[in-house]
Design a protein around this nucleic acid. Sequence first.
DNA 1: CTCGATTA
DNA 2: TAATCGAGG
Length: 342
Amino acid sequence: MGVNLSGVIECREVDLGYLSGRKVTIDAYNTIYQFLSIIRQPDGYPLCDSKGRVTSHLSGLLYRTANLIESGIEPSFVFDGAPHELKRTTLDKRKTRRDDAEKEWEKAVREGDLKKAFTKAQQTSRMTDEIRDSSMRLLDLMGLPLIEAPGDGEAQAAYMCAKGDVWASASQDYDSILFGAPRLVRNMTITGRRKVPGRDEYRTVRTEIIESEEALKHIGLTREQLVDACILMGTDFNPGLSGIGPKRGIKLIKDHGSLEKALKHIGQDIPDYEDVRGIFLDGEYSDAYRLNPEDMDRDGVIDMLAGYDFTESRIVSALDKIDSARAANKAKRQQRSLDSWF
DNA sequence: CTCGATTA
DNA sequence: TAATCGAGG
């Protein structure tokens, strides 16, 4: 879920090609959830192989990553490590919501309400060990850099971005800004018109770039203060105060300068607020990572995905896309170094 | 979400 | 060539 900062964060829309030649590290869990939620059949069931294993995430990862690489992007994937104990409540709440949605999904299918079934099914998406393992295996076979974060993946992504090892962190959530990422990419997909399911409507989804420094200046807070504002409105690590959303949270910190003063003024308390601050401002991270792709194990990818009932011609065309993009980028790099020599 | 055959 | 839409696994 992450913090709710939509509407207060300034961004600029770009084409995917704008990211060409840049290393972008992707919040793997966030992306996989997206795939599990969206890549479904009309009744809400995810794509599965003949053995009943979910394959929605593998489909999404293969095809989207091929497109990103074709656009010249150099992707890497950060996976979450162990969740912080303060996230327990959020995780429990999500489980309850999933269980409730599952019952309503079954009911909607029985009643033949496909639209409702789809919506409810989307809310049942769950990251299992099998989904995590198969995702990592596929990305590894594709030669893509995987980073296993010691803690929150967004903290690790923000660290690599702040160090300048990657140009941006990619996620739908805004948390990496709180973790200190200088740059965030949202909607990193092939952009364009998207049909709204079940209706004759279209909306345009475009890739967004958020420059943290600019966004913070626009809001009028420092990063530390934005963290404080988010603690007031609630994060994955604390529930926040009721009735306080982005607008009020930001105003309270602007008016009073800090969380302590804001809390004193409204006469309320937030237990563990210092710990939550620490999670965002002194996050756990690792230096043991590589960000350059390796040669992909073509047969390995084909064997793996064929085992999940993927059509071989589709796998091959995605892999061809990657190979030719990598060859083209290699040629470009060689040309550049040749140019700089003369 | 993305693919790719079909359609205009 | 571009938009559309059912299928993918």
